[in-house]
Design a protein around this nucleic acid. Structure first.
Lengths: 138, 138
DNA sequence: TTACTTGCAAACGTTTTGCACGATT
DNA sequence: AATCGTGCAAAACGTTTGCAAGTAA
């Protein structure tokens, strides 16, 4: 998600572009790891000292709503956010350092059809996430 | 996970079988939905009134540790637990009523090899979860 | 009898809310 | 000028911890 798109998206939904939001978005955008609200707060305050933790929460909420960022689920917790990739993408996470990489190209059609028949469910969506060790950590 | 196995597993790990634990395990085991600690507390107290919320937390912790139950990640929250299925299984969840069903038979070998090559990661594990509508809700 | 487990109360960390001030449009 | 966003303080919430009493083995 490039630097300009989030401004457009905020604006088009009636939200204002402020220093606090700029600091939050740029912090999440720049990170290769999923960040918790407090991590965002600490990092973003290096650029914008007046930032309050509450604004971080409120901004993250809106950014998630607009699909600009997404929540990352991990065994150790589910409060962290990462900048959303383009298209239908999934996450690959390093267990050691937490580095996150998007990938695409999963084809679960066959599986989903089979499960659908077996269970009687109408399947709408799927979550797929991989865990491992990155180049540096393995 | 049948009614006797959890008793064995607790015992073999040096834990005692108590009324509180019995109430918690039976509550989770009986449910077709993932239950939060408070939901477990409320339901289990119908059978064992003296149960405290703290014991629910401590019991759930141990049961998860032993693999008797597992945490379920959902868009609305990740605090709920469900009785663990046998073998390598994944969850299919109804978005409407929350009913949970296990399925197996995913084969992600091909995908994982391809991602491994592209990213340089050594992939160790995967999370796959499906969302949809169950027979009754669709 | 011994060690584990319990419920209670209190502590804790995270997230949310109310509000008057400040900033964006 | 009007409305939206902010930071602060306080409240609310879920979860964890310390402890003396109770219970399983």
């Amino acid at each position: 998600m490039s630097a300009e798109i989030w401004q457009e998206q905020l604006h088009d939904n009636g939200y204002r572009i402020t220093a606090a939001r700029r600091a939050v978005v740029e912090t999440v955008e720049r990170s290769t790891h999923a960040l918790t609200p407090i991590e965002v707060y600490d990092l973003a305050r290096e650029k914008y000292r007046a930032l309050g933790l509450v604004s971080v929460y409120r901004t993250l909420e809106k950014l998630e709503e607009l699909g600009i960022i997404q929540r990352v689920h991990q065994p150790m917790g589910c409060q962290a956010f990462i900048s959303t990739g383009k298209g239908h993408q999934h996450l690959l996470l390093c267990r050691e350092c937490g580095e996150a990489v998007f990938f695409e190209g999963d084809d679960l059609e066959v599986l989903m059809n089979s499960i659908s028949k077996k269970t009687g469910y109408q399947i709408q969506d799927h979550w797929l996430q991989l865990f491992g060790l990155c180049k540096n950590c393995k």
